[in-house]
Design a protein around this nucleic acid. Structure first.
Lengths: 201, 201
DNA sequence: ACCTGAACACCGTTCAAGT
DNA sequence: ACCTGAACACCGTTCAAGT
């Protein structure tokens, strides 16, 4: 019969997890453009073809890297505090996590699907619905947060290290701007729950 | 097919304007990634080196393309209507103009300096200042509009033609979200100009 | 199945050489 | 000055060949 032993890797012991880890290291150091299949393979100590055995294409690898990065976004507890605080935390945390990797947000926007992990989207919908936002308002707030967060993530870690305005100031501005956006959302919520809506019927 | 022009100035009669025009055509058709110095030269009917004679690098060319695209953003008249309407128009127009070129906004965010033309920035500062926003509020509103507009521009013309939600809906959502953000700004303006805020700071 | 190393068709950039 | 065409050092991707 065949050897059914739990065979450890015979050759280099390459794994997809190790590849993703190395890819994240390179991106953090040199940006998405710095991630090269050759450079990655060299860091892993394998031949070029080995990496391609686990990931058929560079885009597929980046997709996995993105998922891996997304998994670090902290989701809020089911019974959280203020909806605005939760949504704010979620948006900033996502932008911060993704923004750690130069060029990743821009790459995702240009090539992949969404700059926001599905779990974050689901959590946001739940938070906003629970808060009393109408279906239409949920869509508007979500899209506003999406655009804002996408722009934020892409500009948080620019490829160029030289930037006209300093980081600290930028982070504070980003938070204040988000607060302002959420103040507008609060107005919409008031119209949804208590106030009179013209659209009603 | 090559048209034998009657005595071109010297050789091919290449100009930087013609190069930029052709580059914009290619980007509109195939995205920023589709812009290749070889493909561009082929379209212009010149050798690869000719293009490099006018633009030392692909990045320099894209910088010029960006300026050229920016010049199409319509600036509001000096004595406009509502500040919110002007700022909204400016933001949407910029995103729309840049968003016509797939991958351009994402490229700019990753490689170049600003996704917003300097003239637009100046106009916005003027509009907001004239409306009565404090210096700090101007900065906050500007940064919020920057992130929002950047995310919008990058997602308006994605490389992938297939998109989960349709365009019309996305455009309407983008406008509604911007209105919401500006409603938050209006609140800030009220606080700046003497209104009472809930936050006793 | 896992991995190697060469090969293919690109790319940005450079540059000696022509006009 | 303007332009050509070859060359260089890269890339992503493929694939016959080894273990």
């Amino acid at each position: 019969m065949v050897d059914h032993a739990r065979t450890p890797p015979r050759a280099a012991g390459l794994t997809d997890v190790a590849i993703v880890r190395a890819a994240r290291e390179i991106i953090a150091e040199a940006g998405v453009e710095g991630l090269t299949m050759r450079r990655l393979s060299a860091r892993l100590g394998v031949a070029l073809g080995a990496t391609y055995h686990y990931f058929p294409t560079r885009d597929a690898l980046l997709q996995r890297v993105l998922q891996d990065v997304y998994s670090e976004v902290r989701l809020p507890p089911a019974h959280g505090a203020d909806w605005a605080e939760q949504v704010k935390q979620l948006t900033i945390d996502t932008a911060r996590v993704v923004g750690r990797y130069p060029g990743l947000a821009a790459y995702v926007m240009a090539h992949l699907d969404d700059v926001v992990p599905a779990a974050v989207n689901r959590a946001m919908v739940r938070i906003l619905s629970d808060a009393g936002f109408s279906l239409e308002s949920v869509a508007v707030v979500m899209s506003a947060l999406y655009f804002y967060g996408a722009g934020l993530a892409a500009n948080l870690a620019p490829m160029r290290s030289v930037r006209t305005f300093d980081r600290v100031n930028a982070a504070a501005l980003a938070e204040a701007g988000l607060d302002m956006l959420l103040a507008g959302a609060r107005l919409r919520l008031a119209a949804d729950t208590g106030g009179v809506t013209d659209r009603a019927d």
